[in-house]
């Protein structure tokens, strides 16, 4: 498959993509242990089906719905507004440390400063050695203008579907660039996928902050 092939996919026709890092991340979860996962995208059926076999709590904080607002919040003065969005959106109830944060392709759409701020705000909820998984457009200089619908199927592959036909510039973040804007995280794995996206896995350590 050529790089950027996903961009040629017609709307409503998801591309099935082998994503080894994601598959290992979810497949490696111990069925006997309780896991807490934060999903920063919309709730999706495939992920819930996949996690149903585990003892799992999934927190859904759909930041794609706040995207246009978040993009504007780049100055230091905007920190309170960002905190307000998070406070309003983060699940209430008994806090449990997050072991996995799933970003899908959200980080392609957030300015790096906003990403850094959000992760700083989430930091106190992270478990030691928490993992953050992200997908970024890498091979192509273009990407859909809004986040794609991405979710796993039961085989552990990812179904990637564009939600808008229009394309915009892709920031093509390198793993190093992203790592430097994820406070406390270090790059652990990266993988170039069949559609030209990169799959990144970061690991949190409070000692890195």
């Amino acid at each position: 498959m050529s790089a950027g092939a996903a961009l040629d996919q017609p709307l409503g026709s998801p591309l099935c993509l082998r994503a080894p890092v994601f598959a290992d991340l979810i497949g490696g979860l111990d069925e006997g242990q309780r896991h807490v996962i934060l999903d920063l995208g919309p709730a999706r059926s495939g992920l819930i089906e996949r996690l149903n076999v585990l003892r799992c709590r999934l927190d859904v904080l759909d930041l794609t719905r706040h995207l246009s607002h978040l993009i504007q919040l780049q100055s230091d003065d905007d920190e309170r507004a960002q905190q307000a969005i998070l406070a309003k959106s983060l699940p209430s109830g008994r806090p449990e440390p997050l072991q996995i944060v799933l970003c899908w392709d959200l980080l392609d759409y957030l300015p790096l400063a906003v990403t850094a701020r959000l992760l700083t705000l989430l930091r106190e909820r992270l478990a030691p050695a928490a993992r953050l998984h992200a997908l970024v457009e890498y091979a192509s200089p273009h990407m859909p203008i809004s986040p794609r619908r991405i979710g796993p199927n039961l085989e552990g592959n990812l179904l990637v579907e564009a939600t808008a036909p229009e394309l915009g510039p892709a920031p093509r973040h390198s793993v190093g660039t992203l790592a430097s804007h994820l406070p406390g995280f270090r790059a652990e794995r990266s993988m170039l996928l069949g559609n030209g996206m990169q799959e990144y896995l970061f690991r949190f350590s409070a000692a890195n902050v």
Binding site: P42, A43, N52, L54, R55, R57, L58, V60, L61, D62
Partner: peptide, 15 residues
């Protein structure tokens, strides 16, 4: 189980 398109914000505890 959740059908794609449903709007959900919060916690799903399947434990």
């Amino acid at each position: 189980s959740l059908e794609d398109g449903a709007r959900f914000n919060g916690t799903i505890d399947m434990d």
